[in-house]
Amino acid sequence: MENFNKLISTSTPVLVDFYADWCGPCKAMGPAIQEVGKEVEGKARVVKVNIDKNQAAAMQYNVRAVPTFIIFKQGQQVWRHSGMIDKNTLEKQLLAFA
């Protein structure tokens, strides 16, 4: 949890994808998340957090459904979306905080 808090506390925006291995929509979003990560390299970061392996982070940020996407900047949650979302919208939201 300490590493996670350090990661989201930077001035670089961080998109956190809260997912689960058993989640169909999460698997479907996987390639889009990887593409967003490549597109924003150097401007923002993309991190995947498995809610089954990192329950403390999921509980701290009140993740009740997967996938849930949260953008953090300087440790603050600045944007949130639960459920599937298209790659372009996700990328646009992330770069708005870069």
Rank of each mutant, 00 (worst) to 15 (best):
V16E: 07
D17N: 11
F18N: 05
F18Y: 07
F18K: 04
A20V: 02
A20D: 00
A20L: 10
D21K: 12
D21Y: 00
D21C: 01
W22I: 01
W22P: 04
W22V: 01
P25C: 06
P25H: 13
P25N: 07
P25E: 10
C26R: 00
C26D: 01
C26V: 12
C26Q: 03
K27F: 00
K27Y: 02
A28L: 12
A28Y: 11
A28K: 07
G30M: 08
G30W: 00
P31H: 07
P31Q: 09
P31L: 01
A32M: 13
A32C: 08
I33W: 01
I33L: 08
I33T: 10
I33Y: 01
Q34T: 12
Q34K: 15
E35L: 14
E35G: 09
E35M: 14
V36K: 11
V36N: 14
V36H: 10
G37N: 11
K38A: 14
E39V: 13
E39R: 15
E39A: 14
V40K: 06
E41A: 10
G42I: 11
G42F: 06
G42H: 02
G42C: 05
K43A: 12
K43T: 04
A44G: 12
A44H: 02
R45L: 10
R45A: 08
R45P: 05
V46T: 11
V47Y: 03
V47R: 03
K48L: 03
K48R: 13
K48I: 00
V49K: 05
V49N: 07
V49C: 12
N50Q: 12
N50D: 12
N50E: 06
N50G: 02
I51Y: 12
D52E: 13
K53I: 03
K53L: 11
K53H: 09
N54Q: 14
N54L: 02
N54D: 08
Q55W: 00
Q55R: 09
Q55P: 02
Q55N: 11
A56V: 11
A56W: 07
A57F: 09
A57G: 06
A57W: 09
A58L: 12
A58W: 06
M59P: 09
M59W: 05
Q60I: 04
Y61R: 06
Y61H: 10
Y61I: 11
N62H: 14
V63F: 11
V63K: 08
A65V: 07
V66T: 10
V66Y: 07
V66K: 04
P67V: 01
P67K: 01
T68H: 05
T68A: 02
T68C: 09
F69Q: 04
F69C: 05
I70N: 06
I71C: 06
F72L: 01
F72H: 07
K73W: 08
K73D: 08
K73Y: 13
Q74C: 15
G75F: 11
G75S: 02
G75E: 14
G75L: 15
